[in-house]
Amino acid sequence: MAHPRVQKDKRHWRAFNAGEIPPDWPLISWVIAENMLTSDGEQHARLRRLVSKAFTPRRIEHLRSGIVGIVEGLLDGLAAEAERNDGVVDLKPHFAQPLPMTVISDLFGLPTRDRGELHRLVGVFFDQSITPDAAMATFFEMWTLLTTLVAAKRAEPGDDLTSALIAARDDEDRLSEDELIWSLVLIISAGYETTMNLIANAVRALLLHRDQLELLTNGEVAWSTAVEEVLRWDGPGEFVPMRYTTEDIELAGVAIPAGEPLLMGYASAGRDPGRHGDTAHLFDITREDTSHLGFSHGRHYCLGANLARMEVNEALPRLFERFPKLDLAIPVEDLPPLPSIIVSGVESLPVRLT
Rank of each mutant, 00 (worst) to 15 (best):
D173Q: 15
V203K: 03
I199N: 11
E179Y: 07
T245W: 03
G191L: 04
D171M: 10
A164W: 06
P236F: 09
V203Q: 14
T194S: 15
E214C: 13
F239I: 15
G237M: 08
S189H: 11
P157R: 09
L231Q: 01
A226V: 01
S176A: 13
A164C: 07
T245I: 03
L231S: 03
D159A: 09
L213I: 07
E220D: 14
M196L: 15
A205E: 09
R210L: 13
G191H: 06
T162D: 08
F239R: 07
D178C: 12
M242I: 05
W233V: 00
R232C: 03
N218V: 05
G235A: 02
A226W: 02
E179G: 04
T217D: 10
D178G: 06
A202H: 02
N218I: 04
S163E: 04
A202S: 07
E220F: 09
N197A: 05
A167E: 12
L213F: 01
S176Q: 10
T194Y: 06
T195F: 08
L180V: 04
T195Y: 11
P241Y: 04
D173N: 11
T217A: 09
R204F: 15
E177P: 06
E156F: 13
T245L: 00
V230Q: 01
R204Y: 12
D178N: 12
V240C: 09
V221R: 02
Y192L: 13
V227E: 02
G158F: 07
D211Q: 15
E156D: 15
I166M: 11
D234N: 10
T225A: 01
E228Y: 02
Y192R: 10
H209R: 15
M196V: 14
L186V: 12
T162Q: 10
I187M: 13
A164N: 08
L175K: 10
P241N: 03
L206S: 06
I199G: 06
T225L: 06
I188D: 13
G219K: 02
E238I: 00
G158I: 04
L206D: 03
E193R: 11
E228R: 05
N197T: 05
D248W: 03
L216H: 07
W182H: 14
